[in-house]
Computed example of a mutant assay.
Amino acid sequence: MATGKERQRQLAREHYERQMQRRIERQAKTKRNAVIGSTIGVVVVIGGVVAAVTLLGGNDSQPQAASSSPAAKPVDPTKVTCSYPEESKGEVKKVGVPPSKPDLSATQMTMNTSQGDIVIDLQPLKAPCTVNSFAFLASKDYFDGSSCHRLVNPDGGGLAILQCGDPLAKADGKGVKDGQGGPGYSFADENLGGMPYGRGVVAMANSGPNTNGSQFFLIFGDETKQLPPQYTPFGTVSKGIDILDKVSKGGFLADNTAPKVKVQIKDVTISGKS
């Protein structure tokens, strides 16, 4: 039988063990809560970035959520097979589907607009399926009569673009569906990270990965740090950058992103550079 002193020592030992167990449990709970808090913080930060970039406006194809993308991988354009699956979202103007074999001879695109010609040197070897789509759509007079519907020109610098390519856009400040038009098909991203965004660069607008259609944007500003590499760059303006500057200075319509200086596309031609 245990003596009184032995019983006291046993009770003291058990009390000590219970204290240590509770301490361990508190430390584990504190660590777990710290991890959960960090996760929530990351979600809030990401949400803030998405919200900030989405403020560029509209429900059309557009530069949107900032995220990291892998650098462009070298491709052999002669071995590329292009795929253009059906896409029925938005306002569709169907003229058929481009051929699966890309047209690598298409090296220059001329947009004859109401403000003059804008000439774009294309990159068929870096973005073969993108250039192939433009060559096809131009041959079908797809862009004729459409207007560049969206101007982004923030005060004090920042992302500065003119967005075009919606075949049904009127850009008069009244068309609520401006920016929702497409060719009825989509295609995959190309050349991501393969060409730095900068003044004169032309890239595809999209509403997420691999959702390219016919809308594209022309960059006329120098500050492009907030634009992540997730929009296919496929060419550079070689003539007509002054037109973009003129449109920029004109500003946009009140309560709308349509430019005051209207840019209507009369015709688009694709050719080899002379």
Rank of each mutant, 00 (worst) to 15 (best):
T110P: 09
S114D: 09
D117R: 00
I118Q: 05
L122N: 09
L122P: 11
Q123W: 15
P124W: 13
L125D: 15
N132A: 00
S133W: 08
S133R: 14
F136C: 02
A138L: 11
K140I: 00
Y142F: 15
Y142K: 09
D144P: 08
D144K: 15
S147G: 10
C148P: 10
C148W: 08
H149F: 00
R150A: 04
Q163K: 07
G165Q: 10
G165D: 08
D172L: 11
G173Q: 10
K174N: 14
G182L: 13
P183W: 04
G184F: 07
Y185M: 12
A188V: 14
L192C: 00
G194I: 08
M195E: 15
P196S: 00
G198H: 05
V201A: 00
S207F: 05
S207L: 12
P209S: 13
N210A: 09
T211M: 11
N212Q: 12
N212H: 05
G213D: 11
F216G: 03
F217E: 03
L218A: 14
I219P: 05
I219H: 07
F220W: 10
D222H: 12
D222N: 15
K225H: 13
P229W: 05
T232H: 01
F234V: 04
T236S: 12
V237M: 00
V237P: 08
K239I: 06
G240F: 05
G240K: 12
D242L: 09
I243G: 08
L244A: 09
D245N: 11
K246V: 03
K246R: 13
